[in-house]
């Protein structure tokens, strides 16, 4: 095995292990923290795929903002942060069966997909982030999506503030 394979298995084990802890732990806050670990592991995978910018975005947005929002959501919606009920219920067999079928279907689809065995194309020379920035503001490239993204974020912001304002005034 090459170093990259060892590293991949290491990070994959961390991601899977912490993802299992997210759903099995009884303490809601601990679940949120295990989610942070899993998201960090995914950032490491992005870094291994030579997607450094995406890795940093993963940390800044998912670990920095989404995870914090998760913790807040848990604190706002749950009266008790310690789950005392049973982790499994009557539907466990059928749920396991459905997920197994779904996993098998995905596996079948992906192994038949031509991109599954293809190596990643070589990256162009130079600073990738600068190239991305250039593409974002070039009218022939992604200028319009760039400005539309701003409008989309504005809509999300106003929507969040509006809903929160209603909830607050009640």
């Amino acid at each position: 095995m090459t170093t990259m394979q060892v590293l991949f298995l290491f990070f994959a084990a961390i991601i899977l292990g912490s993802a299992i802890k997210v759903v099995t732990t009884k303490k809601m806050i601990h679940a949120a923290f295990w989610l942070v670990v899993a998201l960090f592991g995914i950032a490491a995978l992005y870094a291994m795929l030579n997607a450094g910018f995406l890795a940093m975005v993963q940390i800044v947005v998912y670990v920095g903002a989404i995870a914090i929002l998760f913790i807040f959501a848990v604190m706002l919606t749950r009266k008790e942060l310690l789950d005392k009920g049973a982790a499994l219920n009557n539907n466990k067999t059928i749920a396991a069966l459905i997920s197994l079928v779904f996993f098998g279907g995905l596996l079948l689809l992906l192994t038949n997909w031509s991109g599954f065995t293809k190596m990643a194309p070589d990256l162009p020379e130079g600073d990738m982030v600068a190239k991305l920035g250039e593409a974002l503001v070039t009218p022939n490239a992604y200028l319009l999506p760039f400005e539309v993204a701003s409008v989309l974020l504005l809509a999300a912001l106003i929507g969040a503030v509006y809903v929160a304002n209603e909830a607050r005034s009640e």
């Binding site: 910018f53 947005v61 903002a65 600068a130 190239k131 991305l132 920035g133 974002l136 993204a149």
Partner: peptide
Amino acid sequence: VFLIFDVETVFLFPWAVS
């Protein structure tokens, strides 16, 4: 609100670099 401006950073960072 922070989440929105966090995503804004993602777009503005490459712009600032170039």
